[in-house]
């Protein structure tokens, strides 16, 4: 079992829990930035990851928790096997970003639309997005960037 033991040793996991408030977005961005730097990721990629996490957490705060600061978001980063993963765990109404198609931006601008760009940004910047709902009230959203 040497290989699996090696994998456990190599994998870097970091966690943070914040109350579900837009006030904590800056704290979350700093957490992601620090862990991405520690994983040797370049600046441009770090910016893409930070923005994707910001957009995902903003959606959770707004839509899943409806700005209820008593709710929490658990954020975990994992860097392993050429991938940087961010796992967001939260309760409440779940949502799979993969179910949402990206807007036609020409139509978007012609109609002066507002909002709805968070998911397109996440999809543009991340290589893969996985969503799992467990026990009917626990959501796991994983954003994956290939390094």
């Amino acid at each position: 079992m040497k290989n699996s033991a090696d994998c456990v040793y190599m994998e870097k996991i970091n966690k943070i829990r914040v109350s579900s408030s837009t006030k904590n977005l800056a704290k979350l961005r700093n957490f992601i930035e620090k862990n991405a730097i520690d994983s040797g990721i370049d600046d441009s990629t770090i910016n893409q990851i930070i923005m994707s996490v910001d957009e995902a957490c903003t959606n959770i705060i707004k839509h899943a928790h409806k700005f209820n600061e008593n709710e929490t978001i658990d954020v975990e980063t994992k860097s392993d096997k050429g991938q940087f993963k961010i796992i967001l765990m939260y309760k409440g109404k779940g949502f799979d970003p993969n179910d949402l198609s990206s807007p036609d931006m020409k139509e978007y601008f012609n109609n002066f639309k507002v909002g709805g760009l968070g998911v397109p940004i996440m999809k543009k910047f991340m290589n893969k997005i996985e969503y799992v709902r467990l026990n009917s009230d626990k959501n796991f959203l994983t954003l994956i960037k290939y390094l």
Binding site: R29, L117, G118, I121
Partner: peptide, 13 residues
């Protein structure tokens, strides 16, 4: 130093 879609949305509004 940073803008997210929430900031972009303000200009659209």
């Amino acid at each position: 130093t940073y803008i997210s879609s929430a900031g972009l949305g303000v200009f659209m509004a």
